[in-house]
Design a protein around this nucleic acid. Structure first.
Lengths: 220, 220
DNA sequence: TCTTGGTTTGACCAGATGGTCAAAACAACG
DNA sequence: CGTTGTTTTGACCATCTGGTCAAACCAAGA
């Protein structure tokens, strides 16, 4: 019987329920898929989708190009898998903002969680930045649905805090934008930050500064 | 006598003194070079250097590819010309920060000038963002020299203001980073901003919010 | 109008790129 | 060890890409 000609694994942005008969991935599949995703993250986050090549990714993963394409059916598929994995975790910090908690604490906590994400997952941050810069062709619908809904929801919460006088009367949307901007900057513009502050770890100072900024912004 | 085989115009990042015998550009040269630079800006700012193709740029400029290469000797040259033009204006707002002026007014003025730049030149902002995201291979030296020197100089000014109690004791480097982040975000992540706040012009709200933020940050 | 020099283009090239395929190599297990 | 399904690869292909070139075209002044 000829070998199975389909590719192992799943890699879609759409919710593809795992088929009942899907075999569990072998040890080798796990290792190589992880290597490919990590390599793809390195390359895509640096050069964007169109600027990256399968050869680069294969090199970085330590595999031959045909072997790459044995695990993922196309360049697109690798990219889609990375974006899917990214989006899963990317919105979590905002989801965790609790409307029943202490306003200032909640918002500062959110900002710090987001900063930690930039520190611990700078490649993911740059992958996302690249995607947005290029017009977000592959995640536009998600931005307009999931992201917008989540932001609308939390903006309502923040606005109610402002109306109740618990925080200063700021525009909640711009507040959220500013937290995104302030935190992602350290990952996305790392080269520039390093050029201006050579040798130092910017994240320590950034955390302190961020605390200062947010608390000042929110003081009623 | 055969036609001049060199390309018209200048397009180097290095300071290339205009040769004495350089002929003034013709009407057609001016028009086409401008069209190419504008088209290049459109394409490069969206796809980055490696993700952009000469065909795309030629199409956008309404020229054939060989005609493109009659005006600029290579893809690199177009990109370099754009970066050079960009860097000229990009540092101006910070240069204009006056150490003898009123601290809060100066810093708020700087932030507003930077925001205006994002609003009026979003493509330039994205070109820069793309370059930084990709590791700034073509402007690294400038970041380490011109940019760093300028930031160091202004950071000293800001620190002296803080030491004199005229503004809150903030880290001047992170203050500058935060101004960059807050203002560039609206140009670089425009798609995301538009997805979350559809239809509205974010810059009006951004200017108000920015004023609020900066004044709060700096209150002694 | 003719000449001259700037401008535009079709045809072309070498190398890169995404992707395919059949066959070989290998791991696992009875 | 032999069988079976998984993994890996060399060779290959069509298309794209940056760039070249000689020839054709055109604008403008003498």
């Amino acid at each position: 019987m000829p070998a199975n000609r389909t590719h192992p694994g799943r890699y879609s942005l759409k919710n593809e329920r795992p088929l009942i008969m899907t075999k569990p991935p072998t040890r080798i599949q796990k290792r190589n898929q992880a290597a490919i995703l990590s390599a793809g993250l390195d390359i895509f986050s640096q050069f964007g989708f169109r600027g990256s090549t399968l050869d680069q990714i294969a090199d970085a993963a330590g595999l031959s190009k045909p072997n790459l394409l044995y695990y993922f059916p196309s360049k697109e598929a690798i990219h889609a898998a990375l974006l899917a994995r990214l989006l899963e975790t990317w919105l979590d910090p905002l989801k965790a903002l609790n409307g029943n908690g202490d306003p200032v604490k909640e918002i500062m906590g959110y900002a710090q969680r987001k900063l930690a994400l930039s520190k611990d997952y700078p490649r993911e941050s740059r992958l996302f930045a690249n995607e947005i810069l290029q017009g977000a062709p592959r995640i536009e619908t998600i931005l307009h649905s999931d992201l917008k809904n989540l932001v609308d929801e939390k903006a309502t919460v923040i606005r109610s805090w402002a109306d109740a006088g618990k925080i200063a009367p700021v525009d909640p949307y711009h507040l959220i934008f500013s937290i995104w901007a302030l935190t992602q900057h350290y990952a996305d513009f790392d080269v520039q930050v390093q050029a201006v502050m050579p040798g130092s770890d910017p994240y320590a100072g950034a955390a302190t500064y961020l605390d200062h900024v947010i608390s000042r912004i929110l003081q009623p």
